[in-house]
Structure formats: structure tokens, C-alpha cells
Write a protein that binds this DNA or RNA. Structure first.
Lengths: 117, 117
DNA sequence: GCTTTCTATAGATATCTGTCAATACAGTTC
DNA sequence: GAACTGTATTGACAGATATCTATAGAAAGC
């Protein structure tokens, strides 16, 4: 752990940590949307299922079958995760495949990382 | 970045990443509570304000005055953050001081970190 | 084109959540 | 102990959200 300390002790990070400086309303609203997307057990499991899958892609049908919920409900959750920029989708034929957006997850990880603050 | 790769490629991490293996319902519910706590602009700003403060402690009165919200509302948000284990509080005289729980933030950061998965 | 399969959208509804006003509780000071 | 200050709790309510059923849209096969 070798944080580069500057005058104010934090400008060395291009991705500012949450605790580096008080964030403003707009920033908070944007970040909150992403955390809120992660703040549901079903959506967390969706992210987990997609991320754990070899190849990184999962068909909606496989996701739906992993839950005791209806297909529209899963579709709804996927939409929220996609709006948050956490996942991406691609249609191939009849099927739609979802995959993670690693950069988005990393960004949130960095934000929460105390060490880099 | 030097992940220790094992047979399954992930057991080297004591704190499993979200994408290492599909998480179960209970785990998801617990983690979702923490992410949900972070999924509100006011609470994100509270965490940010507390974390950015020199000394790591902030009095409720200082937090309240930073928002255009009533004192009970701020108290409500602080309670949610505390229930999620993200912050801690201590009463000293009339005042109550809040501080971050770095381990809790780090834990969530690790979970989201794709590299360590 | 018709049917079938897979996915998304629309509408309805019960529950959850963020906010406030009012009040209670805790500690200090007089 | 009475008054005052700082913080938490309660109760109420508008708005958001998770879920379902029903339906629409998209692609493939007949």
C-alpha cells in the first residue's frame, strides 16, 4: 500500500474515493443510482450469476430459471442493472445475452476503497 | 496485481468477490442491505462527509447543518448506515459523534473488485 | 404468413422508503 | 430540579419499488 500523497493528500487518485473529499449533490445522486441497483438481493444474485459464468455471458432464460420469480420480474431487474451501467446486453437470434461491465464494478470498488482515499 | 490462482481460480481470496461464485439468497440479502444503505444520495454524502473529516469523527449537528433536511431525517439516515455496519457512533456529553467503519467499506470494495475475483 | 419461443413493456397493486412535525430522551448548566 | 441544547423516536403521508398478470415485440421454423 503506497498511496501517493500530495499537498492535500488525495489528488493523486484519478478516481476519487468517497472519503477523499465531501461529494456534491449531483455526484451523490449518480453514485446512489448505481448502489441502489446493487441494493437488491435478486439483482446482486444476477450480477453474481453473470460474473461467475465461464465466458462472461448468460442468456436471460438461464437467469430466469435460477429464481422463483416470473420472467418479467427478472427482465425488470436486468433493466435496472443496465440503466446503472453495471451490465450490458446483446441480442443473438432469439436470445439476449447479458454480461458485466467490469469497469463499472471497479469504479465502485475504488470509490469504497479506504486505502486509496 | 498478482492474484493467486488455485484449482478453481478463486479460493485464494478469503473475501470472495461477487463474481467468484454465484452467491446464495442469504448472502445476497445481507450484502443488499449494505448496498441499499449506500443507495441514497443523502447517505452517500453523509459517509463522504464523515470520511473526509480530519480526525474521522463528525458531530450530528455538523452533519445536519450540511443538508437542507430536518434533524430527524438525518438521524434516520444515520441509523440506516449504522444498521448496515458502515458507521459507528459514540456519545460524548451532549453530542454524538459518528465515524466510518473502514473494514465494512473495504469489504464491499473487495466484493466489487473484479481483479480479485 | 402462421405458430412458436424468447424477451420486453404496460398496467395494477401491495409494500417499502424518505420526509416532516411533534414528541421523547439524554446530558449539561444554572 | 428546571431550563436548555443536542439527538433519537414516533406517527403520518406522498412517492418509489418489487412483484404479478396480461400483452406486445422479435426472431426462427414451419
Amino acid at each position: 500500500m503506497l498511496p501517493i500523497v500530495t499537498a492535500t493528500g488525495r489528488e493523486a487518485c484519478s478516481q476519487a474515493a468517497l472519503i477523499a473529499d465531501p461529494i456534491d449533490d449531483e455526484t451523490a445522486a449518480g453514485l446512489a443510482q448505481v448502489f441502489k441497483a446493487l441494493g437488491d438481493p435478486v439483482r446482486l444474485r444476477l450480477v453474481s450469476l453473470i460474473g461467475a459464468r465461464q465466458g462472461g455471458e448468460v442468456c436471460v432464460c438461464d437467469l430466469t430459471s435460477a429464481f422463483d420469480l416470473t420472467q418479467p420480474t427478472i427482465s425488470h431487474h436486468l433493466k435496472i442493472l443496465r440503466a446503472a451501467g453495471l451490465i450490458d446486453s446483446e441480442r443473438r437470434g432469439t436470445w439476449v445475452y447479458y454480461r458485466l461491465v467490469p469497469a463499472a464494478l471497479e469504479r465502485m470498488a475504488t470509490l469504497l476503497s479506504v486505502a486509496t482515499g
